[in-house]
């Protein structure tokens, strides 16, 4: 469980996050949606501790991050997995070495223990047999799956994904979304996903936070997002004709 209270973040004069309060539950896929430039990545990087913020607090399972001791911070980092927007695989390492990296940094497992774990997670993301490939030899969808494997290899409690399916075809995107949701449920992780993909919103949005110009404009779930009257949300979510039709049908059916 992650609780965010009144988070403010600026870069110099530019006030990016303007007092965000929300919470993300364990075992659920939490989505942050919003237009490009609305502050999603900045928000996620604050959650990760990559950015400092001027005001507000972030608590991990009831403990406030800024009050952590250095040792506690390091332990928290071992419990965090992150899937970056562009995968961010280490390009000088093979796929297996990439996935093994967090184990080498955070654990004292033997080589064979680590190899077993790597085999297990690579199988989990359906990448059996790609161990020896370099990231540059893998397709975009494969790279995303490697990034997910690397993020979950050390059994994290918290999983963060920045637009995990941008740049993928719709079918692969759904595979990735479902994979993240399954893993979240299976390992009872607290998962936070940045997205502007409406398929994801409808498929896996167990909790949805809508950001607009650095404010939390709306929050709800994939079920309530159909019914909301909030104009900013409907303008954003139903900007395509297809989704407008889907919403109309849904509302007619549920009258």
């Amino acid at each position: 469980m992650i609780e965010v209270n009144n988070l403010h973040k600026s870069f110099g004069e530019a006030h990016i996050l303007k007092g965000i309060t929300t919470s993300f539950e364990k075992g659920k896929t939490n989505l942050i949606i919003g237009q490009s430039g609305s502050g999603k990545t900045v928000f996620l990087k604050c959650l990760l501790g990559l950015f400092e913020y001027e005001e507000g607090s972030i608590a991990y399972d009831g403990k406030i991050f800024n009050e952590f001791s250095p040792d506690e911070k390091r332990d928290l980092r071992a419990d965090i997995g992150m899937v970056f927007q562009g995968s961010a695989l280490f390009d000088s390492m093979t796929i297996a070495e990439n996935v093994m990296f967090p184990l080498r940094m955070f654990t004292k497992q033997s080589k064979s223990e680590m190899e077993d774990r790597v085999n297990f997670v690579l199988k989990r993301v359906n990448l059996d047999g790609a161990h020896k490939k370099m990231p540059s030899e893998a397709s975009g969808g494969m790279q995303k799956r490697v990034a997910i494997a690397r993020a979950i290899v050390n059994n994290p409690k918290y999983l963060f994904c920045d637009e995990p399916n941008s740049g993928l075809d719709p079918k692969t995107a759904i595979v990735i979304d479902n994979l993240i949701q399954e893993i979240t449920d299976e390992y009872q992780m607290t998962t936070v996903i940045n997205s502007h993909d409406m398929n994801s919103v409808m498929e896996i949005g167990e909790k949805i936070v809508f950001l607009k110009d650095g404010y939390k404009e709306w929050e709800g779930s994939k079920d309530t997002i159909f019914k909301t009257e909030n104009e900013a949300v409907t303008n954003f979510v139903y900007s395509s004709e297809l989704f407008k039709k889907v919403r109309k049908m849904y509302l007619e059916e549920n009258q």
């Binding site: 990760l48 911070k73 390091r74 980092r77 961010a88 390009d91 940094m105």
Partner: peptide
């Protein structure tokens, strides 16, 4: 170019997330 590529592809962020 090797460090710069790591910067622009967020590999450096990935290191920092792991506390490195």
């Amino acid at each position: 170019s090797s460090i710069g590529t790591m910067r622009v592809t967020e590999q450096i962020d990935a290191l920092e997330v792991m506390g490195i």
